[in-house]
Nucleic acid binder design. Structure first.
Length: 268
DNA sequence: ATGTCAGAAATCTTCTGA
């Protein structure tokens, strides 16, 4: 069994006690983080190692972005990926080898949010988001050697299904739920014939959210969110999905990240 | 336009990104 968590932590230094609490409560084997918001020089390596995660891969980018992989098991072939010719701390991967299991390739990805205007012709940030996703799709399509055991995780900043937002009609013109977003995410999904692990377990008819805005003063964590964070598996792992859930209660731990972790268990 | 966070650079506050 491999227990994987993906979490946009919104500053690992601000959230270090929450990270420890989550490790204790859910005992994951590997944790993929996004928005660590720290240079590698100020990454809290000692704290994370003390939690039992001695194998750490980080790709920091100062006060913004930043991704990491924290593992109980050895990591090899750590790669910080340049995407659309920018080195801005948005994609890291490593191969994790469990004690009594086969190696698994693990990816932690932070897709650009995309700004406000839902038209890539006038909104450079949105065009950059779509270009980033296409670069990831090209990369995975060219890496058939890893097809058997790959896990893609992260804040993909897209909610693809009507049940992934709290009001499908209202959100169709909002970045993250536009036709452009959904088409781009589908191109990425087809790049390696990925399976959306959460939707294998939870019916596509049921609302599932991983993000709730800080800006809604009366936000209801259970009812008014978006599913922006995902864990996908390659075809070779599709039949290994044992369970999947969003750790909604973590969104209530103050001071909270605006994202809740996603947890998937894989049979090995 | 608005709401609320986090980090940076420079202060007792404003900016940027989300």
């Amino acid at each position: 069994m491999i227990l994987i968590i993906s979490w946009n932590i919104n500053s690992i230094r601000k959230r270090i006690t929450h990270l420890e609490r989550m490790m204790d409560a859910y005992a994951p084997d590997v944790v993929c983080l996004q928005e660590t918001k720290t240079h590698d020089a100020t990454f809290p390596f000692d704290d994370v190692k003390r939690m039992g995660f001695e194998h750490i891969a980080t790709y920091g980018y100062g006060g913004y972005n930043g991704v990491a992989i924290l593992s109980r098991y050895p990591l090899s072939d750590i790669q910080c990926h340049e995407r659309r010719k920018k080195n801005d701390g948005r994609h890291i991967s490593a191969v994790m080898t469990p004690e009594n299991g086969a190696p698994v390739s693990v990816h932690s990805i932070y897709v650009p949010a995309g700004g406000e205007a839902p038209d890539p012709r006038i909104n450079d940030k949105f065009a950059d988001k779509l270009a980033f996703i296409d670069c990831c799709a090209d990369y995975f399509a060219g890496h058939h050697g890893f097809r058997d055991a790959v896990v893609l995780t992260g804040d993909l900043n897209i909610a693809p299904l009507p049940s992934d937002v709290w009001d499908h009609h209202k959100m169709q013109k909002r970045i993250g739920h536009t036709d452009h977003d959904i088409a781009a995410l589908d191109r990425l999904r087809r790049s390696l014939n990925w399976t959306d692990a959460v939707r294998e377990i939870i019916s596509p008819d049921d609302p599932v959210f991983t993000w709730w805005s800080y800006r809604q003063s009366e936000f209801k964590v259970d009812s008014k969110g978006w599913r922006l964070d995902h864990i996908w598996v390659s075809p070779g792992l599709k039949d290994n999905i044992e369970s999947a859930e969003v750790l909604v209660d973590v969104r209530h731990w103050t001071p909270a990240s605006d994202h809740a972790p996603v947890l998937v268990k894989l049979k090995t």
